[in-house]
């Protein structure tokens, strides 16, 4: 049981760093630009499709990953200029409608371009296989690589945000964007940069999971809801909050999903316990969110409620 716990903790952390990569962009876009972006999951999906395409073209996952980055920057900039820029002055409802429309357009476009069948990305040779953990338990090398890559990005973001001028502007923008623009900062440029950064992070997350998940339309929506929970728990606009929130949500979700049914099996028959436990795990995440919001209405690190 202890072995299983350690293994599931690793699984939780791995999901956590992915959620963090997606949530970081979402929390910045919402915190600084005040735009509710339902299409953020689309970027995650597009990242996965990019890496699938480029990896197939070049025959190497690493080239695919490298080529994905400029493509992600381009997609982020185009989206910002064509759609998102027009939404800054609009109400949240307009933003939700427009970005939801974007989700549908993007999903259909992806289907037209890449077809309806899920794509597959071959895993880089050096990271395939698994390492023995304890006893019969093994852990895939690639998932460890995801954890390391995610932590590295988190560390990089920490440095940028706390120790550079751009980071200072980002923090200032999240706290009071009116004041930032009043001080003579080109807010349009800052917004475009924030949105593109968020897009690249989400695309990067999508590219990282491509070798373990099938690349499919709709993969974005499945993570988007959890990401929103992460942003709310962490506090809108806070990268630190997004990091902590992502780990918290992922670990609660993973451990709840596994140990809920195991504990319930003590009192129920296995098949009923399996079903009840499956319902319990997603509930735990929302209970966690409710409890945190009760104690801290602005989230863990939120500046304003």
């Amino acid at each position: 049981m202890a072995n299983l716990f350690v293994l599931q903790l690793l699984n939780g952390v791995q999901l956590g760093v992915l959620l963090f990569l997606i949530a970081a962009g979402l929390t910045l876009v919402f915190g600084i630009m005040d735009v509710v972006n339902l299409a953020h999951g689309v970027l995650y999906m597009v990242g996965a499709y990019f890496v699938a395409t480029f990896a197939a073209l070049t025959g190497s996952f690493w080239w695919g990953l490298l080529l994905m980055l400029p493509a992600a920057v381009a997609v982020g900039l185009i989206l910002e200029v064509v759609v998102i820029r027009r939404l800054y002055a609009r109400s949240h409802l307009d933003q939700v409608l427009a970005t939801f429309g974007l989700v549908m357009i993007a999903n259909e476009t992806v289907k037209i371009v890449w077809g309806v069948s899920p794509l597959s990305v071959p895993m880089p040779e050096i990271l395939s296989g698994s390492v023995p953990l304890m006893g019969p338990l093994q852990y895939p090398v690639y998932r460890i690589a995801i954890i390391i890559a995610g932590l590295a990005v988190a560390g990089g973001l920490y440095l940028v945000i706390n120790h550079t001028r751009i980071g200072m502007l980002l923090r200032a923008g999240a706290t009071n964007r009116m004041m930032v623009s009043a001080l003579g900062i080109d807010i349009g440029k800052l917004f475009a940069m924030v949105f593109t950064l968020g897009a690249v992070l989400a695309c990067f997350a999508g590219a990282l999971v491509a070798p373990i998940l099938s690349v499919d339309t709709g993969m974005g929506e499945s993570v988007l809801i959890l990401t929103f929970v992460v942003v709310v728990i962490g506090g809108i606009g806070s990268i630190k909050g997004a990091f902590l929130g992502a780990l918290l949500v992922a670990i609660v979700d993973t451990l709840g999903g596994v140990f809920g049914p195991i504990l319930l099996r003590e009192v129920l028959d296995p098949s009923a316990a399996g079903q009840a436990g499956r319902m319990l795990a997603p509930m735990l995440v929302y209970i966690l969110m409710a409890a945190i919001l009760f104690a801290r209405p602005a989230g863990l690190f939120g500046g304003r409620a």
């Binding site: 093994q138 049914p261 098949s271 399996g274």
Partner: peptide, 22 residues
Amino acid sequence: AGEVFTELGQLDFSSELAQIAA
């Protein structure tokens, strides 16, 4: 050995696979 129901549309099976390994 075990009977697990996953969420419909679930894409990451890492926690279920860990149980199978255990």
